[in-house]
Design a protein around this nucleic acid. Structure first.
Length: 414
RNA sequence: GUGGCCAUAGCUCAAUGGUAGAGCCCCAGAUUGUGGUUCUGGCUGUUGCGGGUUCGAGUCCCGUUGGCCACCCCA
C-alpha cells in the first residue's frame, strides 16, 4: 500500500526535517512579533468560490459530508483568515501580525515542487495600509530564508506593484472587466513568446514591453528598496515589474521569491490585498491587509541544493532528536535499580532509553550508538556505583548511584 | 486536462525472448561485561496490475494504475 498520489509519508527522518523547518519558521516569525493561529482543515466549499469563482472547484479536494454540506479541504488559508478576522477583529489591537503553518490541499496532477498536499507558512499583517507594512513583510520573507543560512547568492525577492499596472490600464482607458485578463498576460510574459503576448495586449503591447525591458519607474517600489536598504537587506531584493501574480485580489505591492539559479518554482509569494477581507465578509468589516506564503516543498528542495543550509538544518535535526542517555543493564539482577533510576532521569527531563528485553552488553552498546546517545549508564557488578561512559571519547567514570543526577549534569555539560 | 519517458527484493539497481541476481538495510552469530571496522549465516519477489503474441515473456504488443518531466494552471 502506497500513499495516495501527491501525498507524503513522513518517516522519522522526513518528519524531523519538516519539524526543523517549522522550528526555524516559528523562531523568525516570533522575532518579528508575529503570533501563531490556525483554523479548520475543512471549510464550506462556498468560502473558496466566493473568493476565486466557481472554476476553483475543479482544483479542490471537495465532497459532500454526511450532513449533506458541500465541503472542501483548504487549498489555502487566506479565506479562513478573512472569515476569522471579520468575526473577531475587535478582540485585537491593530495591526494584527499573524502567522500559521497550515497543511493545504489541492486536487491537481502532481509534479516536482507541487504535490496534492503541502505545508505552507502564511504571514499576514492586517489593519495597516502603510508602505512600512509591506516592507516589514518583505523583510520577514528575507529573514525567514536567512534563518536557513541562505545568502543573497541563493535567492532574490522580486518586487512589483499592481497599482503601477492598473494605472497604466486606466490611462489607456481599458475597461475594468479586461484588467484581470491583461494582468495575467503580463504575468506570463516571461514564459511566453513576445508575439503571442503582443497579440493579446493589442494597442498596449508597445508600452508594456518598454516597461518590461526596464523602461518603468515606480517611486513606491524605490521607497521599498530604500527602506530595505536602511535595514541592510537591499541586496536580497530587486524591482521587477514583470511580477504581477495571477490572483485577481492583489491591490498594491506584490512580490515573489526565487532561487538565484532559477531552477525551482517560486519559493514564496504574496502582496497587498486591501479589499479581500471586506469582500469575503460581505462588507461587514473592511481592513487593509498584506501577506505572503512560503511552502515546505520548494523550500525543502532549495535547502537540499545548498550545502550550507542543508548542514545547518541537519545539525538542528540532530539537536532536536538526539538521545542523552542509554542504560546498559549488564547484570539482570540490577534491572530493578536501573528502572528506578530510569524514571528519576526522565523526571529530571533527560532523554533516556534502554533495552526492554534482556540483551547482550555488546548489543546494548551498539543500540546506544545507533540511537545517538551521548553517554551510557552501565548497571552491573559495580553497583551501588554506576559507570558513566561518554561514547564520543570512550571516557568512563564510576559514580555512586545516589550522586548520579548531579554528576551527570557536570559530566555532560562539559 | 494534454504529451513524452519509466515501473524488478524494504532501498539503489542488474538479467540477448530461455531456471530472477548483486550491493545496501534489517535479523542472528564470531566461547560467558563494552559501541563505529571486519567476517559468517539468515530474511525478502504473484518482475505495479489485467489481457494478448510465443514452445517459452521481467524482456515484444494493447489496456490500466502509479511515478518522473514538459505544457496548462496556479494558493
Amino acid at each position: 500500500m502506497k500513499p495516495l498520489p501527491g501525498f507524503r509519508d513522513f518517516l522519522p527522518d522526513d518528519c524531523a526535517f519538516r519539524n526543523a523547518i517549522f522550528t526555524r519558521w516559528r523562531e523568525t516569525c516570533r522575532r518579528y512579533g508575529f503570533i501563531e493561529w490556525d483554523g479548520p482543515v475543512l471549510e464550506p466549499t462556498q468560502l473558496y468560490q466566493k473568493k476565486s469563482g466557481p472554476e476553483i472547484v475543479g482544483q479542490l479536494f471537495n465532497f459532500i459530508d454526511k450532513g449533506e454540506r458541500a465541503v472542501a479541504m483548504r487549498p489555502e488559508l487566506t479565506p479562513t483568515l478573512a472569515r476569522v478576522v471579520a468575526a473577531h477583529e475587535r478582540d485585537f489591537k491593530k495591526p494584527l501580525k499573524w502567522f500559521s503553518i497550515p497543511q493545504c490541499f489541492r486536487y491537481e496532477k502532481q509534479q516536482r515542487g507541487r504535490l496534492r498536499e503541502h505545508f505552507q507558512l502564511n504571514c499576514d499583517l492586517i489593519g495597516d495600509d502603510s508602505l512600512g507594512a509591506d516592507v516589514e513583510l518583505v523583510a520577514l520573507a528575507i529573514d525567514l530564508l536567512r534563518g536557513f543560512g541562505f545568502t543573497a547568492n541563493d535567492f532574490v525577492v522580486r518586487l512589483s506593484d499592481r497599482t503601477f499596472w492598473t494605472e497604466l490600464l486606466r490611462a489607456h482607458n481599458v475597461p475594468d472587466e479586461r484588467w484581470t485578463e491583461l494582468l495575467q498576460v503580463i504575468d506570463k510574459s516571461e514564459r511566453e513568446p513576445r508575439e503571442k503576448a503582443a497579440e493579446k495586449l493589442g494597442a498596449l503591447a508597445e508600452s508594456v514591453f518598454e516597461i518590461l525591458d526596464g523602461g518603468g519607474h515606480s517611486e513606491k517600489l524605490e521607497q521599498v528598496v530604500q527602506q530595505l536598504d536602511q535595514r541592510g537587506l537591499a541586496d536580497f531584493a530587486k524591482i521587477d515589474l514583470s511580477i504581477v501574480r495571477g490572483l485577481a485580489y492583489y491591490t498594491g505591492v506584490v512580490f515573489e521569491v526565487f532561487d538565484r539559479k532559477g531552477e525551482l518554482r517560486a519559493i514564496a509569494g504574496g502582496g497587498r490585498y486591501d479589499n479581500l477581507i471586506g469582500q469575503l465578509s460581505d462588507g461587514t468589516v473592511s481592513l487593509p491587509a498584506a501577506g505572503f506564503a512560503m511552502g515546505d516543498v520548494v523550500l525543502g528542495e532549495l535547502i537540499k541544493n545548498v550545502a550550507a543550509a542543508f548542514e545547518q538544518l541537519t545539525e538542528l535535526v540532530r539537536q532536536e532528536s538526539a538521545l542523552d542517555l542509554y542504560l546498559i543493564i549488564a547484570k539482570e539482577e540490577r534491572r530493578p535499580e536501573a528502572l528506578r533510576i530510569l524514571q528519576q532521569l526522565r523526571n529530571a527531563k533527560w532523554r533516556v532509553d534502554y533495552a526492554i528485553p534482556p540483551a547482550k552488553v555488546g548489543k546494548q552498546f551498539q543500540t546506544a550508538e545507533a540511537l545517538g546517545a551521548k553517554a551510557t549508564l552501565l548497571f552491573g557488578d559495580e553497583w551501588p556505583q554506576v559507570k558513566i561512559k561518554i561514547l564520543s571519547t570512550r571516557e568512563e567514570v564510576l559514580v555512586p548511584n545516589e550522586q548520579l543526577l548531579p554528576r551527570l549534569q557536570q559530566t555532560l555539560s562539559s
